[in-house]
Nucleic acid binder design. Structure first.
Length: 382
DNA sequence: TCTGGGGTCCTAGGACCC
DNA sequence: TCTGGGGTCCTAGGACCC
């Protein structure tokens, strides 16, 4: 089965940090980190020069959401604790995340791409897949056109990979970052891809790559050469077969332009660990607030849910979840609060807690304020 | 001075039904 | 009396991604 598609993966370069630089151009060229819940920079009343927070002055539990390439040179990457990154780059500027601005720029770059190639799969706020199979033009030229359109619409840079399938396109977009275009063809992809670490494959994370290493497999080429039966024996039927196929350049997943949400959730890590008894009032307030926010999210997106769940993370970072499926759907805050309260009764509350979360799943679209019931009849929310 | 918040998908066991 | 499968739903946990 020959795959004759042409798939692009477009990835914005250091997206959140780059959006911030649009607002604060004086920070261009400096190590800048986005993360935490700090205050926005303010201009001094007289001088007009903006005051920025130093990473070294940060106190709390935040992590790096994005860093500029200058900050990455210090070893500061996404997901790293801010306190830890402050040791690596104390003089870096710390900016709080401004999701409204990121969402605006996200809509903007996607709209610019859609003008040229409308077959787009959303992969989050800063990346997309594009099926270019039906679009005219040589691949490099087309990629440069897309890059120019994104830059003109947003002032932001992106990297693009073009390949016969999504997995290869995704790896390709990362090969010449930032601002690069990489085109992989059926004839040449192996030369570029097989020497890379198996960890580069989207779907092979820290655990799987560690297990592969222990089996003597480091590179994608080694994964491709491993017998399928060997991979199946170590990773199970589904994962083993998938790894073997994908390392051999086979990935038939289509670019999916429409999808329904499966769950909606809100969670919060506390400034300090809280105790179920000692901090009961504070916890109760946070819990109710999370339920109300989930309800508001459901309302805004036009869904009700049948399953409500909670998540707790204890001081030792171990997490537990509990959920409950109801014989009817609901979307109101008090109803979600009651269901989540039932879940809360089934977990140990004798230890300190660092995080509390509430989730709604089993989502059902709401029409005219009435939800379709599971048996086809209609049922009203509580 | 470790480790955010929002998601998706998969697995595995038990209940329950045919 | 023992011993089936298959299918679906529910629950809990974990891997992974952005």
């Amino acid at each position: 089965m020959e795959d004759t598609r042409r798939i692009a993966h477009l990835d914005m370069d250091a997206f959140f940090a780059s959006v911030e630089l649009l607002s604060y151009p004086e920070l261009r060229g400096r190590a800048v980190v986005v993360g935490g819940r700090g205050a926005v920079p303010v201009s001094a009343a007289t001088g007009g020069e903006r005051q920025f927070a130093r990473l070294a002055d940060y106190v709390g539990r935040g992590v790096v959401t994005t860093s500029t390439y200058e900050a990455r040179a210090f070893g500061v990457f996404s997901g790293m604790g801010l306190m830890k990154s402050a040791r690596l780059a104390p003089e870096a500027v710390l900016l709080p995340a401004n999701f409204d601005a990121y969402r605006r720029n996200s809509r903007c770059f996607k709209a610019a791409v859609a003008e040229i190639a409308p077959h787009i799969e959303d992969r989050g706020i800063d990346e997309i897949y594009i099926d270019l199979s039906g679009v005219d033009g040589e691949s490099h030229a087309l990629a440069e056109r897309l890059r120019a359109a994104v830059l003109a619409a947003t002032g932001l840079s992106c990297s693009i990979g073009i390949a016969p399938n999504k997995t290869l396109a995704k790896i390709a977009s990362d090969l010449d970052k930032p601002g690069g275009v990489t085109v992989l063809t059926d004839a040449h992809w192996r030369d570029r891809i097989w020497p890379l670490s198996a960890r580069k494959i989207n779907g092979i994370g820290p655990k799987a790559s560690e297990r592969l290493t222990r089996l003597g497999i480091e590179r994608i080429g080694e994964l491709a050469a491993a017998p399928e039966a060997f991979l199946v024996s170590h990773f199970g039927e589904a994962s083993g077969r998938w790894m073997h196929r994908v390392a051999n350049g086979i990935d038939l997943r289509p670019v999916v332009t429409e999808s329904e949400p499966k769950s909606v959730s809100r969670e919060s890590t506390f400034e300090r660990d809280l105790h179920a008894r000692h901090d009961r009032a504070a916890l109760s307030e946070i819990f109710t607030d999370l339920c109300m926010r989930v309800a508001a999210d459901l309302d805004r997106s036009g869904y009700a849910c049948r399953t409500v769940g909670i998540k707790l993370r204890y001081a030792d970072f171990k997490s537990v979840t509990r959920d409950i499926t109801l014989p009817f759907s609901l979307s109101d805050g008090p109803g979600i609060r009651r269901a989540a309260g039932e879940c809360l009764k089934r977990v140990a509350l004798d230890r300190r807690i660092r995080l509390l979360g509430v989730r709604a799943s089993g989502l059902i679209p709401v029409t005219d304020g009435v939800t379709a019931g599971t048996d086809g009849q209609l049922c009203l929310p509580w």
